[in-house]
Amino acid sequence: MSVPWRRAPFSRGRRRRWPLLLTLILLLLIVRLSKGALLNDAYALLSLPFWPGPAQSEWLRSARSVEDQARLQALASDNDRLRQLLALQRSNADKAVSAPVISRQSGGWWQQLVIGKGALAGVRAGQPVVGPGGLIGLVASVTPATATITLLTDPSSRVGVWVNRSRNQGLLSGSGSARPLLRFLDKDPEARPGDLVVTSPASTLVPPNLPVGVIQAVDANADPAPVAVVQLIAPVQAIDWVQVLRP
């Protein structure tokens, strides 16, 4: 008699503990399979007041910035070396010469600027000239104190460019009007109004990827290849200072 009396409460207790035990095992399994997710999260929540301050985070960000700059310099020098091997123009904005515009002839048969820096300041014929917004022309001739810039709108101007989006090459030709023409080399240039035009990395005259203008209209049926009208970004009529990019 004594045995059933003793076994009955024990069995009832065991039966009551079974769900608890199963839940615990399930919980442990979840913790195990989730690589300690619940534990770690709980620990993070509990230890939040004791976390390290923002100083170390700033150090990390600063170190990342230095690393990025070093990598950028390495890439730039690598790019320069490769462009030199290919005899292409290199971009070097650090050696730019700032010069004031002292004469502006942008509406006649010759479309040119005269700037107040010349051979004495290191300006040489053929160097590209940029204004606020992008390329405006190339140095045509120099005197000791001045230089004459042939604008991109002058009919004698020819610069290799490409459409930034579609990477289609073309030749930007001055036409005597305020908007030069982009004569594509491909039959299907995939260009449309609004596309940005930049100097071509294949150009031997100008550094790569200088902004030039925005395509205003495309004549896809032009012969022998499509032609686009380009609105220059740099406002030649209003520019008072320019920069001559030296190699």
Binding site: P155, R158, S173, A225
Partner: peptide, 9 residues
């Protein structure tokens, strides 16, 4: 287009 002809200024 002939690039040489296009390039003539």
């Amino acid at each position: 287009p002939d690039p040489a002809l296009l390039a003539r200024a």
